[in-house]
Structure formats: C-alpha cells, structure tokens
Nucleic acid binder design. Structure first.
Lengths: 255, 255
DNA sequence: AAGTGTTGTTCGCACTATTCGAACGCTTGT
DNA sequence: ACAAGCGTTCGAATAGTGCGAACAACACTT
C-alpha cells in the first residue's frame, strides 16, 4: 500500500499543480512572482496559467491570478466519498455547541490526516486548521487516535513514508516514543495532544472504526491549555468524545 | 475580460485534469477504463495517475483510483476567497429553516455560476446541484439574477463565450428572450425559474450586489412546482429573499 | 510630458519529456 | 489448467514543453 518513489513522473502536470499550490498559499500572484518562486521561465508559468484559466481552475482578476472555484467541485466530491463526513457532521456540531470548544472530524488518506469538518463553539480559539487541511497524523490528537487503530506495521510504513517532522518542541519525533503513546491510547481509548502542534493548545481525540476495527477517522476537541487541563481532558471530555464516536460508528454501519 | 481561445495550451496538464474530471464523474476507475474513455494509451494514463497519486490528488484503493482529499484544500480555499460565503451562510440556513425548502448561495466566475453553499429545510427536494456545482447562469434563477445585475455588454460576452445550452424544453435558448427576462428581473428585483433546469422544479433568485452595483452573487430558493406556485414565488418568497439579500449586502459592506 | 522600470504577453527554436505500443506478471473466472 | 483481462514497466520516436528574447501596456518618477 506504500506509495513508493515514482520512476517517471509527469513533470508538466507536477508543475501545474505546483503553481496551484503556490497560488493557494500566497493568494493572488502574477506570472513573474510565480516564476521566480518556482524557478521557471515566466513564459512557462504564463502558459500554464492560461491553460488552467481556460478550464476555470484559476481565475484572473485585476490583482493577478488566483485559485478558481472549479476546484471546489473536486474537493466536495472527494469529501462526500467518505461517508464519515455526513454521519459525523451533526455529532461534531452537537459537541461544539455542548462544550463551546473547537471540534473536528478527521480522516486518513495515504498516511496523512485530512480535516473533513470542523465546528466552533462559543469560545473556541483559532487554530491553523481549517476544512481540507492536510496534517501529519502524529502531530494531531485525532491523528494519533487513528494511528492507534492501525496495526504496528502500518504505522511503521507511515513513519517510513512521511517521517516524524516536528511542529513545536513538544511534537513526538521519536518512533519508540510514538509507539509507547499509541499503546497508552489503545489502552485508554483516547489520545491527548499537549502543545504538540501549536503552543498553548491542548486536544483530545478518539478513533472511529468500522466493524472490522479499521480506523475510518477520528473526532477531536481542542482549546487553550488553561481551559483544557489534563483532568478535564482525561475525564469529562474524553468520555464525551468516546460516546459520540460510538454513536457515529453505529450510524456508519447502516450507511 | 473574455477568456478567448488559447493558442498553445499545455496539453499534458489538460490531460491530467481530464483524468481527474472523469474520476469525479464516474467514481472509481482503473487505467484501462480511463484510457478508452479519453482515447489515450493506458500506459499514459497510468503514468498520470501515479504522478497524481504521489501528491495525493488521487488515491488508489482496492477498486481503482479515485479523487483524493488533497483537492479539498484547494476547493475550500477557493470558496473562502469569496467572503460572500461566510456572510451569506447564516442567512441561507435561516431561510431554509424558515421556509422548509432548499436555499442556495451562488456566485459567478468567468461567466459561470458556482453553488457556494446550500441548506435544505424540512421538506426540501433533491436537485442535481450540490456544493461546488458549476452551472450555466441562464439555467438558474440565481444565475439570471446575477446576469440582471451585469451591464448588457457583459451579458453578451458571457453568451458569446458559453452559449445558451438547454437543459429542459423550458430553458431559455434565445438571446432576445433572455434579455427580455433580464429587463423584467431588473424591474421587479427577483428572477424566476420554472422547470428551466429540472422538470417540475421552480425557483426564485435575487441578486446580491456591492456598493457599486456589481453582482457578487445571488441567493435562490427552489422546490417542487406544486408547492412553489407563481403566486407564492412572486409574493411571499421573493420578498423574503429580497430582505435576506439586503441584509447580506449590508454585512458584506463591512467585511 | 517624456522616460524608465516593471509586468504581462507572444513566438520561434532546441531539446527534454511525453506518448505510444509491446511485453511482462498477476489475478479472475471458466 | 488455460484463457482473458487488468495493472504495470520499459524502450524508442516524435510531439510538446520550456527557455529566452522581443514586444506591448502600464505606473511611477523626474
């Protein structure tokens, strides 16, 4: 299942997507700026942009080129393929309302975590995550919850493929340490995250599995460390999420 | 502003996107099936798929290749660029709750309509539209509302570029007829759609404009023709939408 | 108002990178 | 057991891409 390094990639397609990626990160850019960032001739970038524009994948406005809405169709389609989305959505809303914190539904593809849907309660804080965000699993409470539901060799595969890059100095960067935590998570049923992705941000995550025990995703709750103390996380909030996950699992089995 | 036919498009990038488009439409496919549909060698398709897979734009599962979640990030980003989305969303929810019908927020890019956000009330019907759907403006109530806020020459441009393709036998396919309707819409402030895109489906749409009067989108309400009679559409529902659009316009001016 | 710098755009040419086809191993079904 | 289908790999020919130079359209300065 590992996506190993490819021998002969289609470079032209890769550069088109590299352009889109830059436009997504930087907002609105012109051919010259893009060319210098990507080390390409500006005529090359221009040609790509015009091709993408013709199909609606990028749009030209007065300030330059930006990502076009044509890509929304693809994204929504990709999300709807996971029926976890529609099943978990109402539960995520409910939890956000109930706790006032930020609640996310996350799933896994190719060893990476994707934020499918998030809802913010009354006093939820801003985090770098938004819908569609791709993250490293070991950096997320939800991600570690997902990893805990995988067999060890699959976790090894994922680490081999993506490594264990750090985000803060609390991020797990050691393979053995990660496996130790995963053992604890399997034991208790939930994962914690203490400033491992953003300073002063804590979170709990619980896995969602199918009947065979394979993870199909996770739900997490995150907030400021002063409100989300260890006591509250491990007791009140973990149990809340475990109950919600259980309901989602049951509903998933009938869809 | 017209996107005229391009002289030298990047064909390789275009085929990659053609593959993605097919995967979106057909679900999960293999290289052979894709190759025959796109008139390409299956080795070519395979190479594209592997390149796309490496970046997470497609995913390989047991049944074949499918669109990957990596594209969700792009789509959400594209949607968030239009601040109409976050401003109109609560109003759309409210209208759906209030009326029980399906309510949409639509915007325009390159002369095409994009469904930004939709909410379904209690007895809302299924329509072909979902979030991200790209449509011809003249086939939508919201689309005609948007067109009515454009100057005539811009409307001409859009017709020249995209034509007036029919969806049902009630679809407007004549330029003069469209302009006549647009005049009425400008006069009354709202657009109607009577089975012009789906048989037995009626809708009302009202434009949302900025301070300069340029359209930034529209909101629409649609439902079965027996419930949405002309009387109800023109009186009760049109006024409801006009009020909502007005609020959205005010909120937009402070964002 | 003229000039200078920058940016977006077009086009010919060299050469890289893509396409095709054929062949391989693999699974599925008869 | 064999055939038929699929996904995958690789070499070779040619088509298509990328580069650079040149042009046009502004914006900003002097």
């Amino acid at each position: 299942m590992t996506v190993d390094q490819q021998r002969r990639p289609v470079k032209t397609a890769a550069t088109s997507f590299a352009i889109l990626e830059r436009l997504k990160e930087q907002g609105t850019l012109g051919p010259t700026a893009l060319a210098s960032e990507l080390d390409l001739a500006k005529s090359t970038v221009h040609r790509h942009l015009k091709t993408l524009e013709q199909e609606g994948y990028v749009v030209l406005d007065e300030d330059g080129y930006r990502v076009g809405l044509r890509l929304l169709d693809f994204g929504i389609h990709a999300r709807n393929q996971h029926n976890l989305y529609e099943v978990a959505k109402p539960k995520v809303d409910e939890l956000a309302e109930q706790t006032g914190e930020k609640v996310w539904c996350v799933t896994e593809e190719q060893g990476r975590g994707y934020h499918l849907y998030g809802a913010g309660g009354k006093h939820s804080v801003r985090t770098p995550a938004r819908e569609g965000t791709r993250s490293y699993l070991h950096q997320l409470a939800a991600g570690k919850a997902i990893l805990s539901a995988f067999p060890d060799d699959r976790v090894d595969e994922i680490i081999d493929q993506h490594g264990l890059p750090a985000k803060t100095n609390a991020t797990i960067t050691d393979r053995d340490e990660l496996f130790e935590q995963l053992a604890t998570i399997r034991d208790r049923g939930f994962a914690l995250n203490r400033e491992e992705i953003v300073p002063k941000l804590h979170a709990v995550g619980v896995p969602i599995t199918d009947q065979a025990g394979n993870p199909v995703g996770a739900i997490s709750l995150s907030g400021p460390s002063n409100r989300l103390t260890d006591d509250r996380l491990e007791d009140e909030l973990a149990n809340l999420l475990l109950g919600a996950a259980n309901e989602v699992e049951i509903n998933l089995s009938f869809s």
